[in-house]
Design a protein around this nucleic acid. Structure first.
Lengths: 339, 339
DNA sequence: TTGTAAGCGTTATCAA
DNA sequence: TTGATAACGCTTACAA
């Protein structure tokens, strides 16, 4: 109430309630072994004094922080610009809201993770969630041997992926779904704008794409590589067009690149889907902001976020949760495929 | 190094270096009053033992956390979907990267801020930055009497705004700039899609808009109100068109609404800017993703974020920084105005 | 059911 | 320049 009312301590609450520190602690932590009378007195004192437990003291004494870190090795522009992050973080927050845990967010691109690493190793969180498009960053390894860690997606480095806990989308299936929808629509000259070759989603979606084509007796009408940004999608589309090969469909490894591709298509006077079908990946809000609205492979990112928290909580509780959790993508059909 | 190497303590470092706890503490905190020999021995021991100071202990003893909170009373979708947040948070991170502070992010819409409030009042941060489109949320008041607080934008509630520290954009000037560009282009039947009447940016931009029109001897050709979302911009545009009044220009209080308006214009066969000029606000990435690219009033949000940190650090250091900091918007001219 | 007392890992005060 | 020695606010055996 009063402007600078420095928080009351447990000691003061105990005095006000006429009990000992321990009893206050028990009440605060919901121990059943307290008499109703004591509970009432303590709660009353807590309310009167506006008491909030000091977290540092609690952490120090209990060796647990009730905080988990969300580490994102990306710069803010990237982090905020990509709807994938929005959705997965939404799932993380949702699941976390049911727990006493708070989330500490680290956008760790700038300082190469030094500050984040020191923070995590300083015993400030009980665990960490790592979300990135390129988890190649070396410092994640140092985080992982300080606290339990769960990754969004299979980590890039094999030696980490083999031991790490992660929640991944079946990207190979996703690639198959994307290509499959194009094949089913009767397209035969199908190109792809793939993600980077050093990133599992990039790799896996391409594998799925090629597998689906191969199953159908087709061959890719072109493979261009982007970096998941809109500009790279546009550049890749230009490259595909410039190759001279005939193309009647494009599968882009994410919606941002699909959008870049679609603007190039539109600029060069090609109609979607009449001339060229386009399928994206992510089913992000982007997919509803473009005309025609692109068919897209939906990743259950929200669910992925929730599951990451689930696994991490299991890890923290030492319940030995499944090391690898896979969620299935699904095709969301819109207007950019059918002839 | 070893998998579960529970962090070394200052005690162990002291033993390894053959000095006392105090000396280690001095070295870690950069005190000048330590002999070079001791410094060397301690640093060596720190490196060998891989020592990282325990933050909880430090916080408890020093009564300072080296952490600040970013409180955003919005749901994740909103937070991540609006480029304004991306930019301002970018500025915040940038300025913070130069300091030892870490940032704790609270997306506090879900639990009505209970968890966030308890966290902040539990002495876990040295200060808080509050960023939102609608800072009407009552709990900010409770935060403000626990730790120093800096707001992005003038708080909605007058009794808070009168005493709070904030960094605001001159929205009245922004409204003037937007309307002015339309007037300068020779438009005379200018409508506006305003922001909510209970939010300072909504109010101020409308005031600026009307002032500019009035100065030019004009009257608004229609005022529709949106909520800063794209859908609301579209609805407002339909409303304006349905009013039957002739309109040759629209000033939207943000880019998202401008985009919504532009799609309606396009759907109804109107050409921008030939038939109707459009000016947005924010100069967000959105402004470069639409065709034609809309002229927009640029808010220096990145700078605003940096300044917020600046002011908060001043507050924490008890340097009595300026209570109100105003940054000026500027017009970014693109293709959506000129006839 | 309650209280006592011993930490948790730092910083900070004071002497030396 | 260094080292004891109290805090810091809480949890948690252990006793009662």
């Amino acid at each position: 109430m009063s402007p600078a009312s420095s928080a009351a301590t447990i000691e003061e609450v105990a005095a006000a309630a006429g009990v000992s520190r321990s009893t206050v602690s028990r009440v605060v932590n919901g121990s059943p072994a307290v008499s109703p009378a004591a509970v009432a007195a303590v709660n009353d004192a807590i309310a009167r004094l506006n008491y909030v437990p000091n977290r540092a003291a609690r952490t120090l004494a209990s060796r647990t922080t009730n905080a988990i870190a969300l580490v994102v090795p990306e710069d803010p522009t990237r982090f905020f610009g990509d709807p994938f992050f929005a959705t997965i973080v939404g799932g993380i927050y949702r699941r976390l809201a049911e727990t006493p845990y708070v989330l500490n967010v680290f956008l760790a691109s700038d300082d190469s993770g030094e500050k984040a690493t020191a923070y995590l190793r300083g015993g400030n969180v009980d665990g960490a969630l790592i979300v990135s498009h390129h988890a190649r960053d070396g410092f994640v390894a140092r985080i992982a041997d300080a606290v339990p860690v769960v990754f969004a997606g299979r980590p890039t480095q094999p030696e980490i992926a083999q031991r790490a806990h992660y929640v991944d989308v079946d990207n190979v299936l996703g690639g198959r779904l994307g290509a499959g929808s194009l094949i089913d629509a009767g397209r035969t000259r199908i190109a792809t704008i793939a993600g980077p070759a050093d990133m599992p989603p990039g790799i896996d979606r391409l594998i799925g794409f090629e597998a689906a084509l191969s199953d159908a007796g087709l061959e890719a009408a072109g493979i261009a590589v982007g970096d998941f940004s809109e500009a790279s999608g546009a550049a890749a589309m230009r490259e595909l067009l410039a190759s001279g090969r005939e193309i009647d469909a494009v599968f882009a490894a994410n919606d941002l690149m699909a959008r870049g591709a679609m603007s190039v298509l539109s600029e060069t006077g090609r109609s979607v889907p009449a001339d060229i079908s386009v399928v994206g990946f992510d089913d992000s809000v982007i997919a509803t902001q473009v005309t025609p609205r692109p068919t897209s492979v939906r990743q259950p990112s929200f669910e992925q976020g929730e599951l990451m928290v689930e696994v991490l909580l299991g890890l923290i509780a030492e319940e030995a949760p499944e090391r690898v959790t896979i969620v299935d993508p699904e095709l969301v059909v819109r207007d950019s495929v059918a002839r």
